[in-house]
Structure formats: structure tokens, C-alpha cells
Write a protein that binds this DNA or RNA. Structure first.
Lengths: 147, 147
DNA sequence: ACCACTATCTTGAATGAGTCAAGTTGAGGT
DNA sequence: ACCTCAACTTGACTCATTCAAGATAGTGGT
């Protein structure tokens, strides 16, 4: 886990001013992968006291634009954020409880960019979401097998 | 393009009552792939006159639950619907204009289900979204090359 | 064809993530 | 220390989607 000084360097490296809300949001995202905006707001407030939700929204957008964090939003979920950026990893989402876990790219470094026919598009990123059940939900709930 | 009778059969096959809103929504989704709810409401109303938005929402949910249509919702987009179900195809989304196109699975039939490590999840579906620019947007807008 | 049953539709209000706007504060440079 | 503008606060607002209650109309049986 990076320290405050590291976060400060990250911000300066992205030409962003170093403010306490930004440091706190950056720390929150690093500590709580896949947290939604609301959770991040709560964590930040535990850290700093009152901080406006607008500030957190702004910060998250700035950090996302600077590629310091990445946002994901599977169907039926609000926006979630994570600090793993720059690598080519994907996500598994549990249909039952909504839990999200990281998975590394199935095939290699960035071959996911290869679509069989690209419909004329210039593709720069492939986002993969695996759907299923986490081990806990698979154990507890009936799998409704066969129908 | 299937005819009304085909839609009727689809509904009965899914144990759903055959109503005009349902036939109209089913037709709209077949005719307008990747349309959002609002567009579908408009198309349905052109067809039937006044229909409540709630009815369309309900119908779309029922059809989705019955696997007669599929919903997709890339980041920053509202829910969109398509009638291609049961095959293993994915989508390209244009970052500039939001256009969506179908792409067939990159690797084969359903190998997308193979994650390198599944984090203990039981995976049943892989959803892939390719991000890039459609040919039109790639031609008109500067590619902001190099950063 | 008619009836009963209830799934489906209508109407209207509510929810909630996210955005917009105007004014204040504070980080960073001189 | 002072200035400037990015960043924060406050508070209102948007709009896709959902909730709830009552009216309507498919469907199966007679």
C-alpha cells in the first residue's frame, strides 16, 4: 500500500494540485478496491471530517481522467473505482451478491484487443466482465440447475 | 425480420401473455438493435398510440427475464436492448459518438468463459466491451496521438 | 359467446446517482 | 506576504428507473 508521500507524487505527476480530499480519495480507492462512490465518501469523511459529495465526485473524475484510478460499472451497479491501472486485468461479478474480484487477462498481455471483425472501429481497449457466482453464493444458494 | 406471428410464438413459448405493447416492443427491439428505452418508447408509440413508459419498462424486463431480448449498458450509457440472444457475440462502443456495433466472439464459440484464474467464482458468462472509435469519428476527430 | 381470474397496463408520485451553478477557499508561484 | 485560479462548499436540479394502487384486458374453462 503506497504512503501519503506516494499519493502526493502521483498527483504532482499528473499536474494535479495536492489537496487533502484528493489524498484521502486516492488512499480510499487504494485501500478499498471496487468501492462505490458512496463508500468512498464515507471513508474519506472518517479520515477528514466533513467533505462534500461533490468534491469526491470531482476528485474521482479528475483521478480517472489522469488514469490514477479506473472506474467500472457492471450492469445494475453504480460506478465503482479501483487503483489497479495500466495492467490488463478484468473482473468477475457475482450475480447473487454483487461482489467483484479481479482476474488477469485470460489470454496474455493485450490480445483481448483482437476482435474477429472490428466493424470498422479503431479499438483501443477491451473490457471484460465475467458473470457468475462467488464461492460463498455458489455454496449457499441452489444453482437452479437445468431450468 | 420475424413477423408478428413469430413474436406471438416467442411470447407464448415463454409463457407470457400476448399483448400489443409486448408485440410492439419486441418488434421495436428487433428493428432497432441497441436502442435505449426512450427510443423504444417512441417507436412503440408510433405503432400503437399512447403507451405508458412503465409498460415499456415492464415489458423490457419481462422479455429480458425470458431471454427474448438482452440488455447492455456500457459505462456512461443508459440501458440498451437487442434481440440477438443465445449467440456469443460482443460489442464495440465508440468513445466519441456512443455508437454500438456487434462483433463476434474473438476466439471461438465460448472460450471467453476461460479466465486465467477465476478467483473461486463459478463463471457462466463473459461479457466483452471493446472501446474505440467508429470509422466516422476516427476520420473526423483528431486522434490526440501521443497524449 | 360469456365469465372469472389475475397478469398486465395506466397514472402519478418517489427514489437516488450523478450533474450544474455560483460563490468561497486555499495551493502554488512570484 | 500576495495574487490567481484550480478546487471545494452549498444547494438546487436532472432524469433514468422504480414503487404503488387501481383499472383493464388476455386466457382458459363453461
Amino acid at each position: 500500500m503506497p504512503a501519503t508521500l506516494d499519493f502526493e507524487r502521483m498527483l504532482r505527476g499528473a499536474a494535479l494540485r495536492v489537496t487533502r480530499p484528493r489524498l484521502a480519495v486516492l488512499a480510499a480507492v487504494h485501500e478499498h478496491a471496487h468501492a462505490d462512490t458512496d463508500s468512498i465518501i464515507r471513508v474519506v469523511r472518517e479520515d477528514l471530517g466533513e467533505v462534500s459529495h461533490q468534491a469526491v465526485y470531482d476528485v474521482l473524475r479528475a483521478l480517472t481522467a489522469a488514469s490514477l484510478v479506473r472506474s467500472i460499472a457492471p450492469q445494475g451497479s453504480v460506478a465503482r473505482y479501483e487503483a489497479r491501472v495500466g495492467d490488463n486485468h478484468h473482473h468477475v461479478v457475482c450475480r447473487a451478491c454483487g461482489a467483484i474480484a479481479d482476474v488477469d487477462c485470460a489470454v496474455g498481455d493485450a490480445p483481448c484487443l483482437t476482435a474477429s471483425n472490428d466493424a470498422g472501429y479503431t479499438i483501443d481497449e477491451a473490457e471484460v466482465i465475467y458473470w457468475g457466482r462467488c464461492s460463498e453464493c455458489a455454496a449457499t444458494s441452489p444453482e437452479s440447475s437445468g431450468g
